[in-house]
Write a protein that binds this DNA or RNA. Structure first.
Length: 261
DNA sequence: AATGCTAGCAACCGCGACATA
DNA sequence: CTATGTCGCGGTTGCTAGCAT
């Protein structure tokens, strides 16, 4: 199909060999060559594939083809309802960390799960204003990710506590419980967050209890999608001591409420 | 039958992390 | 410490089949 000249060379008049990588769909012959390469040399050293097999594909393309399509342990076919449930649960927890989610689904690839999610659950993009807001939130999330990993153990405990709090019948009780659980770190600012989070959670709960309709399902998926962003924000905040006044504690501080897209 | 639209999926791209020289 | 190579990840693009008009 497409055979594109990659401009990694500076021109044949300078004596560089013109390198041509094939792009587009893989042929059966190319697959066969790649499988033979992996049988002989194992996975890895993907940039050697072209040199050792004559395949005109770059290393990245070879790796992707192997990982997403040729690996013998791949499970083909439709995502099962049970797998779907796992994807939903893990996405609520991890967000768009597809490779992390894929590790819990043997035989499924991150690409497959990502495509499945986008096809089945992701709402269509909203207006550009929302997008810029989301970009900022995404940037902030990336910055916080490393910190999150370090404090993961603590967070798990926090999540359990928060679920407990959110199951309380009134917002006032929820706030009170938070003050008991986190007397040293529970700030006024976070009281607002608890209130917002509590409201949002109860809204989505009431929706899910009603007779499902397509519009309500849309709202639910929106909530799941948004819950991840806000939940991450909230959890991060709760893991800091209130004496820490670092600006990163208030990533969306200029907006008085978290952004629900 | 022709055309347009959409969902599903494979593949590509850009970037960052990590390893090694 | 720096440069370079390699790998992995998430976002995006583009092709195709199926369906609607």
């Amino acid at each position: 199909m497409v055979c594109e000249i990659i401009s990694e060379q500076m021109g044949s008049n300078w004596g560089f060999i013109e390198e041509v990588w094939r792009k587009g769909p893989w042929t059966a012959d190319e697959d066969r060559l790649l499988i033979e390469y992996v049988k002989l040399h194992g996975e890895g050293r993907w940039n050697s594939v072209a040199r050792l097999t004559g395949l005109r594909r770059n290393g990245k393309s070879c790796r992707l083809r192997w990982v997403n399509y040729l690996r013998p342990d791949l499970k083909r076919g439709q995502i099962t309802p049970n797998e779907e449930k796992i994807i939903l649960e893990l996405h609520a927890r991890w967000g768009n960390r597809w490779s992390t989610i894929a590790r819990s689904l043997p035989g499924r690839t991150d690409n497959e799960i990502k495509n499945y999610w986008r096809t089945h659950f992701k709402k269509k993009t909203k207006n550009s204003c929302d997008n810029s807001e989301k970009s900022r939130a995404s940037l902030w999330k990336r910055q916080q990710f490393q910190l999150q990993q370090q404090q993961q153990q603590q967070q798990i405990k926090n999540q359990i506590d928060i679920k407990k709090v959110m199951s309380l019948p009134t917002m006032a009780q929820a706030k009170q419980e938070m003050a008991i659980l986190y007397p040293n770190i529970y700030t006024i600012d976070q009281q607002d967050q608890v209130g917002l989070f509590y409201s949002m959670l109860n809204n989505s709960t009431s929706i899910s209890q009603s007779e499902p309709s397509s519009s309500n399902e849309d709202i639910m998926w929106d909530d799941l999608w948004n819950l991840d962003d806000f939940y991450g924000h909230f959890i991060n905040s709760t893991t800091y001591n209130k004496t820490n006044t670092s600006p990163c504690l208030q990533p969306m501080a200029s907006t008085t409420t978290p952004s629900f897209y």
